[in-house]
């Protein structure tokens, strides 16, 4: 059963969720390059999704540098799948 989610539906956040749903975790820089957005735009979108409990952000020091990994939470994954389901229902 689909459920529309206005937070996820915004173009940049929809792309972000689609990308995150495809992998376990993706690094911030990889997300930024793949989505072709600026650091500030991506940070803002992640912050909004994080506040809603849809994404998790983990900072780890690996190979001598700080890396920020982003992933969809279970709640975020469910919301995204539901949202896509609702879009399909609208398309018919």
């Amino acid at each position: 059963m689909g459920r529309f989610n206005a937070l996820i539906h915004a173009p940049n956040r929809l792309k972000l969720c689609a990308l995150l749903a495809s992998a376990a975790e993706i690094e911030f820089m990889v997300l930024r390059n793949h989505l072709e957005v600026s650091d500030s735009v991506l940070s803002k979108q992640i912050k909004l999704l994080r506040e809603a409990g849809f994404v998790k952000l983990i900072k780890r020091k690996e190979y001598g540098r700080q890396r920020t990994w982003i992933s969809l939470s279970n709640r975020g994954h469910k919301a995204f799948v539901d949202h896509v389901g609702e879009l399909k229902k609208i398309v018919g």
């Binding site: 459920r3 529309f4 989610n5 206005a6 937070l7 539906h9 173009p11 929809l14 792309k15 689609a18 990308l19 495809s22 809603a52 919301a79 896509v84 609702e86 879009l87 399909k88 609208i90 398309v91 018919g92």
Partner: peptide
């Protein structure tokens, strides 16, 4: 945040295309 969107089938199709492309 979670309610009826009032978006058209064309908008929904565009969004689904975006998801598929990504």
């Amino acid at each position: 945040m979670e309610n009826d969107p009032g978006i058209t089938p064309d908008d929904a199709r565009l969004s689904l295309d975006t998801v598929s492309r990504i």
